[in-house]
């Protein structure tokens, strides 16, 4: 009897922690890329749950039924539900824009949605080595991002020129003076700026006038004429979460919130030739994609 009890206990221990991958919406490419890469690289059993078509009560019921030890929440919606209904559990997250606005008490781990500013600047210097001054457009919402850029830029001998924008004056904002002073302009995910199509167009018109490259964070800006786009690699994020969970299970120390480890580079060679900006001769081996 005693032996049977110990055997049952042993088999329970062998089963280990139960893991649930919660996808906010499997139709969103960046979520699915992260989940697919996680699935291919995580060597333990886990269940997946797409909550896009589920009601709040259905999600709550599923979480109570499964009651996993570990949740990997992909996207803000999945994180919010996991955090609300099973807050006592370990929750890993990724693909959340502005994750700092969410409550992160207790066992919360994840990969941020923004690349480390030092990583971005190192890549800018790798591709466009002659750039010494970068104008960065920001509002009060992204002051911290600009501060990080200014700090890390010093290490690389680059100067950041911050251009602070405000909602009232943005429509008629002329970027002439800053563009003239800078070797390149940079667009960061600032909610005020990226939601104003006129301001975006203005910036690209002025940059083209002074033949200055525009560096952006999303491939959508290529159609406006961005020369360089640096973004995080979504499959790497999924692999990174898999590595973080594995490290925890093996009781290794890791950073609770990490920056993405992989990058994608789109280089607009056509635009670079048009404005005459010098770029690395090794661009073909550095870039993920080259726009000819």
């Amino acid at each position: 009897m005693k032996l049977l009890f110990f055997l049952s206990l042993f088999s329970l221990l062998l089963q280990g922690e139960t893991i649930l991958v919660m996808n906010s919406n499997s139709d969103v490419k960046k979520y699915t890329e992260a989940v697919d890469a996680f699935s291919k690289n995580f060597n333990r059993p886990f269940k997946t749950l797409d909550i896009s078509a589920m009601s709040s009560s259905e999600i709550k019921q599923s979480l109570y039924d499964e009651y996993p030890d570990i949740v990997y929440a992909v996207g803000a919606k999945a994180y919010q539900y996991a955090n609300e209904y099973i807050p006592e559990k370990k929750i890993y997250f990724s693909s959340i824009v502005d994750w700092k606005k969410f409550p992160l008490h207790g066992k919360r781990y994840g990969v941020s949605n923004e690349l480390h500013s030092g990583m971005q600047l190192t890549l800018i210097k790798t591709v466009l080595s002659t750039i010494k001054t970068i104008g960065v457009i920001h509002s009060k919402y992204t002051q911290n991002i600009v501060d990080d850029f200014s700090h890390d830029a010093k290490q690389l001998g680059i100067k950041i020129l911050p251009i602070k924008i405000e909602e009232e004056s943005l429509k008629n904002k002329s970027f002439d003076d800053t563009v003239k002073e800078s070797d390149a302009m940079m667009i960061i995910p600032d909610p005020l700026f990226v939601n104003n199509a006129t301001a975006i167009k203005n910036l690209f018109i002025v940059s083209e006038k002074y033949k200055k490259p525009v560096i952006a964070y999303h491939e959508l800006f290529i159609k406006y004429g961005a020369t360089l786009v640096i973004s995080m690699d979504n499959p790497t994020v999924g692999r990174q979460i898999a590595a973080m969970i594995e490290s925890h299970i093996n009781e290794e120390k890791i950073e609770k919130i990490q920056y993405p480890a992989g990058t994608n580079i789109i280089f607009n060679k056509k635009e670079a030739a048009l404005i005459g900006v010098k770029f690395s001769p090794d661009i073909s081996s550095i870039a993920t994609e080259i726009v000819e």
Binding site: G118, T122, E255, Y259, G262
Partner: peptide
């Protein structure tokens, strides 16, 4: 344990910025 990244420079920067 191996974490695959797209480029060698990503691998190096990951060490420098604390991801590996």
């Amino acid at each position: 344990s191996v974490l695959k990244v797209p480029k060698e420079i990503d691998a190096l920067m990951s060490v420098g910025f604390g991801m590996s």
